[in-house]
Amino acid sequence: MIIVKEKPLNEILGFLLPYESVLVVGCDGCTQPPRGLREAMTYAMLIEMGAKLKGKTNLKCRATTIPMQCDNHICSTTLTPQLEGINAILSLACGVGVQTLVEVFPEIPVYPGQNTVFIGSQEREGGIMHEKCKACGECLLGETGGICPITNCPKGILNGPCGGCVDGKCEVPFEVRDETGKVIKTIAKDCAWYLIYQRLKKLNRLDLFRKYRPPRNRVISSSPRLLEVV
């Protein structure tokens, strides 16, 4: 999942106050938490209320959603009929969706309603999102017992654990933040390389742990990346 976090309403209002007719576009694709029709409607109403409180009474929002905002074909076919009279779009998708809309509808200003945070998954019970993949382009999981050191080690090192691993815990504090960016709690996270050691030992593959891994070729993960699909 692409983990997103809603932008502060004041920032969104800052984008939208100059306009009168705004289309809020949800995305049914891979954003987590999901940003479908209900979220779009919620934001449409919140924006109208917020605009009113700022003295702008003629800002009207319509809400809609599309299956995947990152697909320019879907965007163009499903959204084109809904753009009558619209002078700005607020996208609730990840950064990919926002940019796709910009490409498909170059004459309409498109604004992001979300901050795209990382690729990860949600721990349902605690409600915490965990980053899981850095899209490094050279997946190492086969050698590390399925635990990603690029993502889970704050240093992203290939020959860990480093000296900061004490009693299996990482030296770096993992901070959980609220919507304003304030740290609400700190979690002592397991050292990724310690977990890798334990897992490979269990799998009787300590040879993989012992192996020296040469420096990564940073070109593979240098942005922007292009990939040809045959």
């Binding site: 809603e6 309403l9 919620t42 209320m49 917020g50 409180l53 609220d178 919507e179």
Partner: peptide, 9 residues
């Protein structure tokens, strides 16, 4: 409420 806080409601 955390959303409404941002529009003072």
């Amino acid at each position: 409420k955390s959303l409404l806080r941002q529009v003072n409601l």
